[in-house]
Design a protein around this nucleic acid. Structure first.
Lengths: 222, 222
DNA sequence: TAGATTGTTAATCGATTAACAATC
DNA sequence: TAGATTGTTAATCGATTAACAATC
């Protein structure tokens, strides 16, 4: 694609605005970020590649290699400063800012999500919860108000929402997904395991705790 | 390791009881299984590698390759029979039977999990919910009773429980994890993002919806 | 200085992909 | 037969790992 002789130093150092990260690198950087944010919460100031490896199950050499591709972020004999590494990885993943998201479903699961800080911790602000049940409309969970589905398109447009989180039972998931897509959402996080039909320009991520367990159990049993 | 000339046909065909699967293969087989189980629920009888690829985001050649390593499960021009492929993969992953699990936390999240079929669909039966709040003890959610933590060790031992699911707030997660480990649980699925300290023989899987979103958003933004 | 940990190399292994004959 | 899709090959690319000099 690009002139090989020019690539070497140039591209590596400016990768922040250059080529796309590979799928693997982006996935791993995201996981480092998760651990770093938790570590920061716990008041940890520095972290070694070895510690990161323990929490992410990613080899420590791999971690140092991934990070050193973007700069010399660590200090030999000490490790990485947690807060500056958070900033660096956020820059690389272009996720420095806040992102507005909507939550669909105000049942037990929706309430649990709205009241937790799993999304807020990573810069995702839940701007509204939607539910088809009129009895729930107007209630508030964790500072977020429940809206009727008629408001969906307006909120998505006005608040520039790209991401929708689906917290409804399997049977209601496709309908809710259709509404989200119709309103303009482009990325769906699906807490049910329902297989969703969406247009090709929409991305679905499906939660799969049981699959993770199957996988863990296999290595426990063998 | 093994005599190379003997490996070729022999080992491949009997891999079910032979070597451990690689991490990658086990992870991918688990994901095929998730989609297959959903497809079966929807009444689908056959599925092509191309369809599996759309739902799993794994390349269709890779899928055919993974499967053909264990036998000729497909029919050319048709695809794979959903129900027999489910059985085959379960055999390969040694997850044909039922597995008893316990749920820790009977709040909104715990109630949502107990009432859903995400775990049951994959052969994980929730035998008990535990909570430190005495007011919740004795209640039932989705056919499962809430127990006090004093019962934990007895239930884990009697019911041969290996897996514990943590559905408590971050602040309570380490304490709950300690109790689970003390009772004999060896695999923990952590719905909070709290970093958990556990003995080396215990495996922790941490849920990370926000991380998945960061990753999806990166590819949306670039 | 002594100990710890990064950054980087070099070598290996597994994943990925395109392509296509086999065959349902 | 014609169309579809598997099973498999061969070639490439990226991930993984051990090892260690550099250096805090």
């Amino acid at each position: 694609m690009t002139d090989e002789s020019a690539v070497a130093e140039e591209t590596i150092l400016s990768l922040g605005d250059g080529d796309r990260l590979s799928l693997g690198v982006a996935a791993r950087l995201s996981r480092y970020l998760q651990v770093l944010i938790q570590a920061r919460k716990m008041g940890k100031e520095t972290i070694s590649s070895q510690e990161l490896a323990e929490y992410t199950h990613i080899n420590s050499t791999q971690i140092r290699r991934d990070l050193s591709g973007f700069g010399k972020f660590g200090k030999r004999g000490v490790g990485y400063r947690v807060d500056s590494l958070v900033d660096q990885i956020r820059k690389i993943l272009r996720s420095s800012g806040q992102h507005n998201i909507v939550l669909f479903g105000a049942g037990n699961l929706g309430q649990a999500i709205a009241s937790s800080d799993v999304f807020a911790d990573h810069g995702f602000q839940i701007v509204a919860i939607f539910d088809v049940d009129p009895k729930l409309v107007g209630k508030r969970f964790g500072d977020v108000e429940v809206h009727g589905v008629d408001d969906l398109e307006r909120v998505v447009t006005d608040q520039d929402v790209v991401v929708g989180v689906l917290a409804v039972p399997s049977a209601a998931a496709q309908d809710a997904a259709d509404r989200l897509v119709g309103a303009g959402v482009r990325i769906i996080f699906n807490y049910s395991e329902q297989l969703l039909q969406v247009p090709p320009d929409v991305t679905v991520h499906t939660s799969s705790p049981a699959v993770d367990l199957l996988y863990a159990l296999y290595f426990y049993l063998t």
